[in-house]
Design a protein around this nucleic acid. Structure first.
Length: 491
RNA sequence: GGUCCUGUGGCCGAGCGGCUAGGCUCAGCUCUGCAAAAGCUGCUACAGCGGUUCGAAUCCGCUCGGGACCUCCA
């Protein structure tokens, strides 16, 4: 595969050239949502980030198997005391069957992914659909001597693991230091060591979600599903694993340990972590009350929001920041993004109307290469977008007859813009279901004729009235030398 | 308290040793009946203090500020 893609690998803390294990195939695993509540905007940012990676790898010609799980059991709120399963807890709260909870929030999740134009993953496995695989993995880890059973639960034995392997490499953590900083180690815990984590939890009498296992009825630990499912669908070693930064520890660290314990080696070549979305400088989170849901952002129906924004404006807004930087949400910032997005889309629509010249005043090849190298540099979408706006200026100048472009260059420019804007960044046109029926076209022609006549008679009150009234119907009038254009716009 | 990241102009946000990021905002000009759009020009930057270097927003140290993680988190 001919390319020059570099990705920042959390494991080595540096950018590395991406080399697929068995090109042209690439295995990509991304930690999906725990479907006990609606995904919020911060979650969406992570999935958008890896959607761009998925898209770019495909653009480069790779055959990507993109696996993104749905966590529908095992995500425990606290591992001390009883261990409350998030799905189970929410089921009680809403008085629903756990699988109703799962279904409800999975449907919302899929809707949001579609609204943001994220491509569906190749496989979207659920934890409950892979109980057998998880039990098998627990057995393997037990057999290897890196886990122990107690009261029907099985825990990963971090101290035993530390004798042969490192724990904490990915997140840069030192277990001894963790120990020093963890207070209140009460003796109530069944774990032998504070850093041990559950592979399999015994289900108490009232626990709804339960499966038979060699250790009695129970349910799998959260970290285990990713290990089991990534191994099943991508193999013992695969190319890329992604997720939000807040999953680095303990989730991903434990995943590495489980795989290493079961197979003798780490599972992943490149670990990628997306940074957080903040609101007023603080991580978006439910407990802080600063999180809002995608549909609230679309409608503007939330105290934090001054108005609604379309999904593509939101996506564009996210793409203007690098995925490894925190991104702060504010009304002002997204307002600015909305205008930028419109400017970009308007220019793209203009490309096909450009009139070719015999010569070109712009180097389209060089432009294309710049766009490529931006993406090659660890998916630097903000730089890519800055280049695209250089292209926007070129398109607009050409449209005004101030800059010549050959027919070949125009075609090339059109191709490049479509590739990067639609295929790679994953924006899509948000045409406001424009009614192109003959009736509408005739009526508009008639209205514009009335306005032209008013203008010719210098009856500007009338012409302005027509323009203003149309604007209220979201029909935007633009006068130019050649006449008057109109278009229907939303937002 | 520990580990790590970060501090750029009115706002957002790249850059990571020398070369205009870009978007939005604001001002002027061109176009225009006026708008809008577009083009051109301009306006404010690299938290502070030291150090390394011919040269630092970029490397090092300290100070101050912000954030993430340290078994809920995308």
């Amino acid at each position: 595969m001919q390319h020059n893609l570099y990705l920042y690998n959390s494991l080595t803390r540096q950018k590395e050239k991406f080399e697929a294990i068995s090109s042209p195939f690439v295995g990509l695993y991304v930690c999906g949502p725990t479907v006990y509540s609606n995904v919020h905007l911060g979650n969406s940012r992570t999935f958008m980030t890896f959607d761009v990676l998925f898209r770019y790898l495909k653009y480069l010609g790779y055959k990507v198997r993109y696996v993104r799980n749905i966590t529908d059991v095992g995500h425990i709120t606290t591992e001390f005391d009883e261990g409350v399963d998030r799905i189970g807890a929410q089921a009680k709260l809403e008085m629903l069957e756990p699988m109703e909870v799962v279904q409800k929030y999975t449907v919302y999740f899929h809707w949001v992914m579609e609204m943001f134009n994220n491509l569906p993953p190749s496989i979207e496995p659920t934890a409950t659909g892979h109980i057998i695989e998880q039990i098998e993995m627990v057995k393997k880890i037990l057999d290897a001597g890196f886990a122990y059973e107690i009261n029907g639960s099985v825990y990963f034995d971090v101290r035993a693991y530390l004798e042969k392997h490192k724990y904490g490499e990915l997140s840069g953590r030192n277990v001894e230091e963790l120990f020093e900083n963890t207070r209140d180690l009460d003796g109530q815990d069944e774990k032998k060591f504070f850093a041990d984590f559950a592979l399999w939890k015994n289900a108490s009498a009232e626990h709804i979600m339960r499966w038979p296992s060699p250790w009695g009825e129970g349910f799998p630990g959260w970290h285990l599903e990713c290990s089991a499912m990534s191994t099943k669908y991508l193999g013992e070693v695969f190319d890329i694993h992604g997720g939000g930064m807040d999953l680095k520890f303990p989730h991903h660290e434990s995943e590495v340990a489980q795989n290493t314990a079961a197979c003798g080696h780490g599972p992943v070549r490149y670990w990628l972590h997306a940074n957080m979305l903040t609101v007023n400088g603080q991580k978006m989170s439910k407990s802080l009350g600063n999180s809002f849901l995608p549909h609230e952002l679309f409608s503007g129906d939330h105290p934090v929001l001054t108005k609604g924004y379309s999904p593509m404006v939101v996506r564009f807004f996210m793409m203007q920041a690098h995925y490894r930087s925190p991104l702060d949400f504010s009304n002002e910032a997204i307002q600015a993004a909305a205008k930028g997005y419109k400017r970009l889309m308007t220019a793209i629509a203009l490309i096909d109307q450009l009139k070719p010249s015999a010569t070109s005043g712009f180097d389209v090849k060089e432009f294309t290469e710049k766009c490529h190298s931006a993406m090659d540099d660890d998916l630097n979408t903000p730089i890519l977008i800055s280049h695209l706006f250089d292209g926007v200026r070129v398109i607009n100048s050409c449209a005004e007859g101030k800059l010549p472009l050959t027919e070949n260059d125009i075609n090339l420019l059109s191709k490049v813009f479509h590739s990067f804007v639609f295929d790679i960044i994953g924006l899509r046109k948000e045409t406001a279901t424009e009614d192109q029926s003959q009736l509408v076209l005739s009526l508009m022609e008639f209205i514009l004729k009335l306005r032209r006549e008013a203008k010719e008679n210098k009856d500007y009150a009338a012409s302005d009235k027509i323009r203003n009234e149309l604007a209220e119907m979201n029909i935007i009038i633009k006068d130019s030398k050649d006449g008057t254009d109109w278009k229907y716009e939303t937002n």
